[in-house]
Design a protein around this nucleic acid. Structure first.
Lengths: 265, 265
DNA sequence: CGACCTGTTGAGCAGCCTCAACATAAGTGG
DNA sequence: CCACTTATGTTGAGGCTGCTCAACAGGTCG
């Protein structure tokens, strides 16, 4: 995690707020007005409704104004991997540019307000406003970096590290939107969290229960309070247990960092 | 997997070949010449050398002319997640656009020839050639879709499915480059494959050995021959074992597709 | 208030990791 | 060219993390 929006705190543009597409200095007022004309298309999605579905033709991108959305990919037999959890200020759907067909589904986790932006309009405008083009590249670049972190989590972290990473990541994202970074509402169910972090729902419960018992957090249903962010951060990076004598050995999780993993190209 | 380059077979542009940046109809001859001026910068990397490293400043993107490259992210304690395996015709480095700093490392797996393209030059040119901008979006969009598949693999597939998916994915990528789709050289070590698929090196060996024993493939060291692509494809999608009576039940791997996973937003 | 959805907790099992020894290939230097 | 060293791949035994199955508790909603 560490997640999206690494460097640039998304800035509201005018009334609708295209957030990630606008930079403080990147786009002028006149351009913003142009942009506003395009994005007037506001929509509300209720919990469980789809912004777009797998295989549907690509026509628009979506800027989230409020609420939250999960995106996920599917296997034939119904297995689900949630690939993203998106909150206000983020931009969805650009990943369908290549094939012109959505490669994943996006579904509202709660009542969610979005701006729907027709991509061809956005493209036209991009040719008049170079910095807009650049912003699109940035948004996608950011998503790639974000996905890389998730892959690291899925491939190399154990259950404790995954959940700690998840909580810390949420915390810092909320902080950037000026929400509380220590107390917030997970809009995802335990099952969703499991499908996001690559673990069973039950394991999510158990680990959270242990975190609470160890004084790292407190929870009631989907409301979390982070009580020891420092220790949580340590857990997320694999320094969770062992303040043990042996500093290098006993890292515990998969990937032993043994002499073999020297990675020689 | 199914991997990159879904729809557009990358086309060589002039002598250097910017592959993914060019479409048959997208970019005119004059533009290609412009592009060529920029990408004259050819370089050779030997096995183990870095195209770029974590935290280094972003200045260029790299188009692979021949050879292969792995990209990966790191944890503090040395754990590694390989996030991409790239072959001739693919474009690397665009994921650093956002932060202007590389968020991963790229390392040659064998002697590899690349075109190094200064990004600011590419951007300038993009403003004159709109379709080039669009191509960049496409390349990144494609990478995102590709990463989503990898996340699905890492989060939801068991060892057999992972390796089958990996082999099938390689096969179809080689096919698109007009290499043999049934016999090819894995340029990654077992350890790399493990760090890519999120499993231990030993497990990679064991599963490959079993695949060979079951007549799906034959291997000697890094040379693979796919002997039953159909069955391999079935395994990749989780239909590997059970041609069992019960069609829906007994899916076997993590994520039971039980009644609970109904995913209700 | 009953039906249902979500979350919690327990018991048992198994897939995959860890550790370790060995085999083979690939370099390296004399 | 061969002996040595190192990297890479293979195979076995055993244990642990996290999954599965299952029953139940607490909320939520009609």
């Amino acid at each position: 995690m560490n997640g999206p929006d690494q460097l640039h705190a998304p800035i509201l543009c005018s009334d609708c707020g295209i957030y990630q597409l606008c930079l403080p200095t990147g786009i002028g007022q006149a351009d913003i007005e142009l942009l506003d004309k395009i994005v007037k298309n506001r929509r509300i999605f209720k919990r469980g409704e789809y912004l777009y579905r797998l295989g549907h033709p690509f026509h628009s991108v979506y800027a989230l104004r409020s609420g939250s959305v999960k995106t996920y990919v599917l296997m034939d037999d119904g297995r689900v991997q949630i690939t993203g959890f998106h909150i206000a200020g983020e931009l969805l759907g650009l990943n369908a540019v290549n094939t012109r067909v959505y490669s994943c589904e996006a579904r509202a986790l709660e009542t969610t307000s979005v701006c729907e932006i027709p991509f061809d309009r956005l493209e036209e405008l991009g040719q008049q406003v170079p910095s807009l083009q650049y912003q699109m590249l940035r948004v996608m670049s950011q998503e790639i970096a974000y996905n890389q972190e998730l892959m690291l989590l899925l491939g190399k972290k154990n259950a404790d590290e995954r959940l700690a990473t998840y909580l810390i990541g949420l915390s810092s994202r909320f902080a950037k939107r000026s929400y509380s970074s220590t107390e917030f509402n997970l809009s995802m169910s335990r099952s969703d969290i499991g499908n996001y972090l690559g673990m069973a729902e039950e394991t999510v419960c158990r680990v959270l229960a242990r975190f609470e018992q160890e004084g790292l957090i407190s929870m009631q249903r989907r409301l979390v309070r982070l009580k020891d962010i420092e220790k949580l951060t340590a857990v997320a990076q694999g320094g969770g247990k062992a303040e043990s004598p042996s500093p290098a050995v006993g890292k515990r999780p998969q990937s032993p960092v043994s002499s073999r993993n020297k990675q020689v190209g």
